[in-house]
Write a protein that binds this DNA or RNA. Structure first.
Lengths: 253, 253
DNA sequence: CGACTTTTTGACCTAATTCAACTAATGTGG
DNA sequence: CCACATTAGTTGAATTAGGTCAAAAAGTCG
């Protein structure tokens, strides 16, 4: 682990999560990958609960999460918070900004994170001269959109317990895709307050629902870790269907 | 009005809604616009409650709504329906499909619609040789995403009445952007069942909430039309902030 | 005019919220 | 390493927003 703000050689230091991520969509040529790696600028370490970008900002670089968890969110005029999605290793934070001048939401770390940056020029170069990479990036954007639809359905049509279970299924599949699970276990540094801001439920109700999920033997949680003893059962329970994540070889995951 | 399936000369027949739409984001060069118009293939008229594309389809063309209303939706394994967004004149239905092979949701007309189609080759040509158009299209995609986030916040953090009011504000602004409002009036051919599938509320509760909004003088509805006597008041009531639609000159709307 | 769909209303029920207190955890400085 | 402060998790009791069921009005349309 490195000190805040220290630069590192991209080559070794960069976790391969974001490569696996891109490859999960489309086979990239070796030279595209190498080029992308070489374009990574500063790699910084950011503590938990820090905003990476804030609503209204004119962002100057595209961030990629290499390690840790982050979340997109927005505050309402009534002082409530809604989380729109979780960012796990390999995820691009703010591709849109190449086009949209200002952020319409914020992104904050949920745990200590290692974050890489790509310059806007790199993005321009991708769109102008790296069609395969370009498609891969657009693809991640479409998957974000599909995920938002699934979350909307989750809030609109499912009960509290089903919602939470569905989120856990999604995170499990995504973590597995970047090889960050062992059996049903994976790191999940979420507070119940954060879950509540995600699910549109009160903290108290999240707490009670989690208890019921635990009592039913569907999940178990301890110190920033979650265990899903029987993934198939949890999927069944929550009505989870991974198609929307558009991962290759989802079945083999 | 034309008969189902009949072709028309694109030039005159195509409403200019979708041109206004694209221009609302980015000033397009005349030749790009003309070229895009010339690429429009068949224009068909489709009755209400017809699927334009269905989940699982491998779509072959990109649809553009020229007239009427449509909606993206998905059915759950439990037989419930969630609507993800409304498509109004000028909107592209399924840009993503150029990249994603299969639809992960369906699109159905809510009223009789005139729909234009663009061939996949046209889309490819846009991404390969029309950078300005390409950016405009990507932009629409990012706005869809931002809109989904706002809807998620809507379901997660707002009360029934606020939710509904917020939807009406959004539709009002979007309809105004393609010049389909007169004062606070615009066409809105939604049943309460459809509203309920949008809001994650029961039909009965939608009915009662609408009544309260009416009684409060915030909206009035009659035969497929809606009137918002005081737009500013409704925005205030629902916490609506149009930034997420990324329209130019929103203030002047 | 019927047949059908949509809207409205009433009575009752329940999932989820709110408020409030209490119990772990986690962290911090001495 | 402990005392204290702070944050996160748990539990109970009372309340409410919204759901369900059922039936009556009111539109819509061939």
């Amino acid at each position: 682990m490195t000190v805040f703000g220290r630069n590192e050689e991209a080559g070794q230091a960069v976790s391969n999560a974001f490569i696996s991520k891109l490859q999960a969509f489309e086979a990239l040529r070796e030279d595209d990958l190498e080029w992308l790696m070489s374009m990574i600028g500063r790699v910084k370490v950011v503590g938990a609960d820090q905003d990476l970008i804030r609503q209204g900002d004119n962002p100057e670089a595209v961030h990629v999460i290499l390690e840790g968890f982050a979340a997109r969110y927005k505050l309402t005029s009534r002082g409530r918070r809604q989380i729109f999605g979780y960012l796990i290793p390999g995820d691009f934070c703010d591709l849109h900004v190449a086009l949209l001048k200002t952020m319409d939401h914020s992104i904050a770390t949920l745990s200590r994170c290692r974050v890489a940056t790509l310059s806007p020029e790199t993005i321009i170069e991708i769109t102008d001269r790296r069609p395969a990479l370009s498609r891969a990036l657009w693809m991640t954007c479409l998957v974000d959109e599909a995920t938002l639809r699934e979350w909307l359905l989750n809030l609109g049509q499912r009960s509290a317990k089903e919602r939470i279970a569905h989120l856990f299924c999604e995170l499990h599949v995504r973590m597995k895709a970047v090889d960050l699970t062992t059996d049903g276990y994976f790191e999940l540094p979420l507070t119940q307050q954060e879950l509540s801001d995600t699910m549109g439920l009160s903290v108290v109700h999240v707490n009670r629902s989690l208890k019921e999920l635990r009592d039913a033997g569907l999940v178990s949680m301890s110190n920033e870790q979650i265990a899903i003893p029987n993934v198939e059962r949890l999927k069944q329970f929550s009505g989870f269907d991974p198609t929307y994540l558009h991962l290759r070889a989802v079945n083999s995951l």
